[in-house]
Each structure stands twice: as structure tokens, then as C-alpha cells.
């Protein structure tokens, strides 16, 4: 239950900050979360999953637009990839940024905590 709650909170923060500051929010939030919760097992994967969920939710907001399908097809065709692949790349991009930033954040948190000790 705690994991789900954490997942939702991180996803909500990523989504809100993405809306406000853009894509930089993902590595920033992920790194900070990793640094704060460095001792939590699998924190990097959790943050990665949260980033993917948050971006999925944001995309879903536009997904209700009647023109979303047309847009996906056109952008995909422009970049010469299927629309579904472009969607996957989008989520993967967020997830990879989040995982890597959280991993490094956790490492920084661990090193800092050791120094404190």
C-alpha cells in the first residue's frame, strides 16, 4: 500500500512539474526522490514507473481530443516510426531519465548519509 501511495505521489509531482517547467522536471524530481529515499529498495524503478505513469496521464489528457489519433499517425509517419512506437519512445524516454536520475540520486544520498555517519 505504501508503495502504491509513493508511486502516486511521485507521479503526481512529476506530472505537475512537467506541466509547469517541462521535461526537466523528470530528472529533477527523480534525482531528489532517489536522494531522499535512497535506502528504499527498488526506488529507481519505482520512480521510473511513476514518471511513465505521469507522462501517460498527461498524454491521456490530450488523448481524449478527437484529433489525437490523427496527430499520432502524422507525427509517427513524419518521423518514420509507427505511432505506437513513438508513444512507447515517449514513455521510455521519461522512464529512462527517471531511473537514471533516481539511481544517481540514491547513490548521492547513500554517500552523503555515510559521510554524515
Amino acid at each position: 500500500m505504501k508503495t502504491v501511495r509513493l508511486l502516486v505521489i511521485v507521479a503526481a509531482i512529476v506530472a505537475a512539474l512537467t506541466w509547469i517547467v517541462g521535461w526537466w522536471a523528470v530528472p529533477l524530481v527523480a534525482a531528489m526522490t532517489g536522494a531522499l529515499l535512497w535506502s528504499r529498495r527498488g526506488i529507481a524503478w519505482l520512480v521510473a514507473f511513476a514518471a511513465a505513469i505521469s507522462w501517460s496521464a498527461l498524454i491521456l489528457v490530450d488523448g481524449f481530443s478527437e484529433r489525437f489519433g490523427a496527430l499520432a499517425r502524422i507525427v509517427g509517419a513524419t518521423l518514420m516510426v509507427p505511432a505506437s512506437a513513438l508513444l512507447a519512445v515517449t514513455l521510455l524516454f521519461a522512464a529512462l531519465l527517471a531511473w537514471s536520475a533516481a539511481t544517481l540520486g540514491a547513490e548521492i544520498g547513500r554517500v552523503t548519509r555515510r559521510g554524515d555517519g
Binding site: W23, L58, G63, S65, E66, V89
Partner: peptide
């Protein structure tokens, strides 16, 4: 020729949000 992926893919204001402006 590939755009910077961050602002391009970012869902709030990136390419996906164009669906909002399509109408």
C-alpha cells in the same frame, strides 16, 4: 534532423499537446 527529444516528446507542451490545438 531529429529534434531535441525533451521539449518534443514532453506531453504537457510538446508534440502530443498539438492535438489540443488541432481544433
Amino acid at each position: 534532423p531529429a529534434p531535441a527529444l525533451g521539449p518534443f516528446l514532453e506531453p504537457a507542451h510538446g508534440v502530443w499537446s498539438l492535438a489540443r490545438a488541432a481544433t
